[in-house]
């Protein structure tokens, strides 16, 4: 894994391992996944790696970050495992450990929630602007420019300056962080 030891990764994935204990390796999840062709290891294989304490292999792959929360695997799992939720717990771990290879998704979610914390509701332009700033990659914004301009032309988003005041949901976010430690 390089940046983080397997022990630290195992700590972070303990809950997921617990959740998928009864996996029978049937592969229904893999067959049901609309994003499977973009995964370097299949969902079935990933559960096996977690069950055999190879968390480092899971985080060396980008499979879980490809999950688009369609819930087909959760619906069809013959063991009734909440696999979509397991995927999101892996995303949480990647974000918590600040793993570089998942940064693009983690920073996207962070920028989104930051906007929610400040205003109570997400403001698209502010959130995307902050996302671009946090990515520190001058090329990425161009990929979004055409959609951004289309939306602006329809009056659906407005250019906004970053907001600096006291956040509307700051107290809630603070309390959650306190409870989750």
């Amino acid at each position: 894994m390089g940046q983080v030891s397997n022990e630290r990764l195992l700590e972070q994935t303990e809950t997921v391992k617990e959740m998928i204990q009864t996996c029978i390796q049937c592969g229904t999840c893999t067959a049901s996944c609309p994003n499977n062709e973009f995964m370097d290891i299949t969902p079935r294989h990933m559960w096996r790696l977690l069950l055999t304490d190879h968390a480092d292999a899971v985080f060396s792959s980008k499979s879980f970050i490809m999950c688009s929360s369609c819930y087909y695997c959760t619906l069809r799992c013959p063991r009734g495992l909440e696999l979509t939720h397991a995927m999101s717990l892996l995303k949480q771990a990647a974000s918590k450990l600040k793993l570089k290879q998942f940064q693009r998704s983690s920073l996207f979610y962070e920028a989104f929630l930051d906007s929610v914390k400040k205003h109570g509701r997400v403001r698209e332009m502010e959130f995307m602007t902050n996302y671009f700033i946090s990515m520190k990659n001058p090329v990425i914004p161009f990929a979004y420019a055409s959609l951004g301009l289309k939306l602006m032309a329809k009056g659906k988003v407005r250019p906004e300056f970053p907001f600096g005041g006291k956040g509307k949901l700051t107290a809630l976010f603070k309390k959650v962080a306190e409870l989750e430690g």
């Binding site: 929360s69 939720h85 999101s88 717990l89 995303k91 949480q92 974000s95 998704s105 983690s106 996207f108 979610y109 962070e110 989104f112 929630l113 929610v116 109570g120 509701r121 997400v122 509307k168 949901l169 809630l172 976010f173 959650v176 962080a177 409870l179 989750e180």
Partner: peptide
């Protein structure tokens, strides 16, 4: 009145409790 964001898919990718608190509000 005064509704706020549900957390979308962002909250559950960052924090378990937050993904419940935001809709619960």
């Amino acid at each position: 009145e005064d509704w706020s964001c549900c957390g979308a898919t962002a909250a559950e990718s960052q924090s378990h409790l937050l993904s419940y608190v935001l809709p619960a509000r």
